[in-house]
Write a protein that binds this DNA or RNA. Structure first.
Lengths: 224, 224, 224, 224
DNA sequence: GATGAATGAGGGTTCATTCAT
DNA sequence: AATGAATGAACCCTCATTCAT
């Protein structure tokens, strides 16, 4: 799987919904549009308040006026990027098939996929994570318009999970949640680590193996 | 256990380290110092960027100049408050004794304690939580100067945990982590809920029972 | 008398002076030229500063570039419209014949005519009125380039008025001025009213009668 | 009567209502406050939209921040100045006594007074006139909060006028209106003149005499 | 210590005008 | 002729920080 860093963003336009596709900026010539979106995402990763439209236009190499010609307001730009990120990442997740009904299997596949997507779309994925925080801080009450695709998928997997696999003496709902939280906790740990260790790519194999071990443990402990 | 809302903050000065105690503002007359700290904490709970020094001075009833006389910059004020909160809350945690070496017992006690401390020091605890987020956003890379007392204690409990209680066929390190993440995941869920349900105090009992159930499940699944 | 609202503007091109006729925009195909002029007038009625060239081009269905291709600057566009309105309205006034030399008769006829022209050319007349204000505000000192056709006609009627109709004990120049100012004052009152009462068309008859009463009073008081 | 040009504004603070007196800016040291108010008035005479806060602060010799420290928004500044002008000019008018019930006498006195006040407070009077126009354009619907002191006084004089002085064969209401409009028309003419002839002070005597002649004529024509 | 008036760089936004196509 | 993307100076406003008193 390729890494989509700061270029080739537009190879994923097919994931976008009509609303985003119809946006003024989407009719801009590819290279420039990409420059704008990337510059804006990079800036907004700092958080909404920390992001400066001045920096964005400088980094995108366009004029102040043009940015506002496309987006009207800073807020609209942010919302656009957020929706855009949701759809790119959501599209990737939707493209994946989770045939099994074994929750541990699925959650393991999901983890592998998540890690691949973080590598494939570091910028977009980064914005997605950061934007949910910004939203809470700056636009509380407007978050409901946006659906976190990862959480959505987790929820779906949870619902579809085969409860009969769980030991009879354990509450299956709780057992499943524990599996989920274990993965979440492990990921959070990685994120914390990732912030300090700039490049933890070399550790990937070990990390993946370790998560596998956690899931194996849970399977031994919670499954029949 | 008493509730320490917006007064009586100074009853906990004995928790403070020398560095904080030596701070310029600590020599201010008690009542005024408390007003300043409380006002500042209330404001910073909104997040660093959303906090206005103007609001702080108005709400503390002091002049703009005085605030900067004591703290030099907004950042220094924020760092002071953060350290202050860490030491108050850290002091409380340190005052508690965790005699057992059963990790589940300890983590349960820790949860009970956490909930009591949130009630006792709503302001200080609130700032603590919010400040870790602000830090990440506004001063990335300076967080290492601050030790989250809750995490510290968890770490200690983890280290001291009696591994022999864990089923022999399970990796005890991983099992303990799973217990930890389950509690974390449960708490995060509550926080998410708490943001929506303004006042979830009436649900405390149910919540506590539910967490207990999770831990019981884990005991059944992971312990000998 | 027909109402010339937002179409048929060009039926009055014969009123236009050579300068206007020679203007770049006048060689544009009729229908489009009309769209441009009407859109621009509608917008400038709001006042020069409140008028947006963006709105004009959207409402005229032309491109931004084309507008500036024809008019160079917003100011030139405004001047063009102003002159255009002066000539249309001025043409109408000039087409009227004031045979009498009785000033009161003439001023009464003038009032009737004014009201008919306001109905016939609501847009052009509206712009004319609004533009004189805008000028004062935005281009003070350039107003002398434009002659208000109504004032011009009043002046002419004033000059031609038969002084011998005025009572011998009164200064005829002053008496005539008083007649003029009475009509002006009455009209101003109506305008003030008109701003509040959105549609005072139903009151026309009463209004006309009342003005007649004022003029009768003046005739009784000032004439032999 | 002295001329209050661009200094000595504050000699008239006693005319101000409590609301204005309580305004933040009124506690500024006299000389600076005057500089601010004068600079702002001079700028706003151009009209609200044409006025730039940048120009005001430069001309007042203060920083951008300070202006907004006092007034919050451009609009609030404008409203303040408007109210201020109304109260200064209104105060002057209220200080005058109109004992007679002869409308012509009163309106003559009023004209003399108006002319003196225009000379005494050229800036404040100028703003007052200009502000009523700006209001209509920019804040339609908020004008009702402000009472034009001149119109108010005219209305009062009109109401109190002794109708029995008017010729029995004339409608006294209309006759009085004609007197009013004559003065208004004459003043408007002067204003138009004044705009062109920068300094029409040398003509004052002639002007005053001429208005007197108009009123004498009206007395001859309309009174018993 | 204590005040709060004063600063000014930076923020987001608007809009007449230009210019490559 | 015709387009509309692109410009950038100017706009109003904010706010942490300073400093004379």
């Amino acid at each position: 799987m390729e890494v989509i860093g700061i270029d080739r963003l537009l190879d994923f336009d097919h994931f976008l919904c009509e609303e985003i596709k119809a946006h003024k900026v989407m009719s801009v010539e590819d290279e420039k549009r990409q420059r704008i979106i990337i510059a804006a995402m990079q800036e907004f990763i700092k958080g909404y308040r920390n992001a400066s439209t001045d920096t964005i236009v400088k980094s995108a190499g366009i004029s102040k006026g043009l940015l506002f010609h496309y987006f009207g307001t800073k807020k609209e730009l942010f919302f656009f990027l957020f929706q855009y990120a949701i759809e790119i990442i959501g599209g990737e997740y939707k493209a994946a098939h989770f045939e099994s009904r074994d929750f541990i299997d699925n959650i393991w596949q999901l983890s592998l996929l998540a890690r691949r997507l973080i590598n494939k779309h570091p910028l977009v994925y980064g914005l997605l994570a950061s934007a949910f925080f910004s939203f809470q801080e700056v636009f509380p009450g407007e978050l409901h318009n946006f659906q976190n695709p990862v959480e959505e998928l987790k929820q779906k997997l949870l619902e579809r999970a085969d409860r009969s696999l769980i030991r009879d003496d354990l509450d299956p709902e709780k057992a499943l949640r524990i599996i989920l939280w274990t993965v979440d906790g492990y990921s959070a740990e990685l994120t914390r680590l990732g912030r300090q260790v700039a490049d933890y790519e070399p550790h990937y194999d070990r990390i993946e193996k370790e998560l596998g071990d956690y899931l194996t443990l849970l399977r031994n402990a919670l499954y029949k």
